[in-house]
């Protein structure tokens, strides 16, 4: 008798389920978008408006706060450091991660599954635990307060994603394509450059951008391991603490926007990381 009762209840239940579903989607979107919107409004408002109440819901397009940052001492150096560290992280994580991804996808070896899990588990290890020993080690080796030293740490953070994304990219390319290229006059190298590379290039780019964003967003290691050569996040964290409210908003905005744009650009490939590539 159960099927009958569910049949009767079905349209109502389904409609109710739809409302819940829509409400959940709206809630989740608001959760992410509302703070971003307020950040935007406050960034583009004059200091008076930022400190007043109630707040307007439309931005005033006052570029005063942003303009202040352009002239803020040290911010350009910090920006340059951020880009350098993120760039290095991007290059190193792809150079190390892509071959690992290729090996995972093309070869069978003992402990392959354990290795995959282990790669992911490195992300579960809390960085604060590592910070002190790392700082001591970096001071001993002279890597402290250098762009290269910090990008090493960031590379460690980015590699798991680089490996998993490239693994799924390489797995998506049938070995037969490479073999066909070999029979058509290619060596292993030319088959890779003429067939595999063009096919995975968009994905590799995405994975590189993701590594860039990870480094760009990272603040803890950057704050602990650098003093003079601060990245933008560490620099702003240090300075905004004592800044007026409107500058805090503007600083936050500067940090959030590039990361958002990058992640939005590569979102398709981040799904690929879990093997649910939508192609």
């Amino acid at each position: 008798m159960t099927p009958v009762t569910t049949d009767v209840a079905a349209p109502d239940t389904r409609r109710a389920g739809r409302y819940v579903y829509i409400a959940a989607v709206v809630l989740l979107c608001a959760w992410v978008l509302v703070p971003l919107y307020f950040l935007l409004i406050n960034t583009l408002s004059s200091p008076e408006t930022v400190n007043s109440f109630p707040k307007p819901f439309l931005p005033e397009f006052d570029l005063g706060s942003l303009g202040f940052f352009a002239g803020f001492a040290g911010i350009l150096t910090a920006l340059k450091n951020s880009i350098l560290v993120a760039g290095l992280t991007m290059i190193m994580s792809i150079l190390i991660g892509a071959p690992a991804g290729y090996a995972l996808s093309r070869f069978d070896f003992r402990g392959k599954e354990a290795f995959r899990l282990l790669i992911l588990l490195t992300r579960a290890f809390p960085l604060p635990l590592l910070a002190l020993p790392l700082a001591v080690m970096f001071i001993q080796t002279g890597l402290d307060d250098t762009v290269f030293g910090l990008s090493l740490v960031h590379t460690t953070l980015a590699i798991p994603f680089a490996v998993l994304i490239t693994f799924s990219l390489f797995s998506g390319i049938p070995l037969e394509l490479e073999e066909a290229a070999w029979t058509l006059g290619c060596t292993r190298l030319t088959a890779f450059t003429k067939v595999v590379l063009p096919l995975i290039l968009p994905g590799i780019t995405a994975s590189a951008i993701f590594a860039f964003v990870i480094s760009w967003n990272e603040v803890f290691a950057a704050a602990v391991l650098t003093i003079e050569n601060r990245t933008l996040t560490a620099f702003l964290l240090q300075n905004l603490d004592t800044s007026p409210l409107h500058l805090k908003f503007a600083g936050g905005f500067i940090l959030v926007v590039p990361a958002l744009i990058f992640i939005f650009a590569v979102r398709k490939y981040l799904f690929a990381m879990w093997g649910i590539a939508n192609r």
Binding site: P174, A180, W182, T183, L184, G185
Partner: peptide
Amino acid sequence: LPPKDRGIAMVFQNYAVFPH
């Protein structure tokens, strides 16, 4: 010899047509 130097051509089960 590698495949390219054997004077052969091959047709694969899954065609292996280059998608790009």
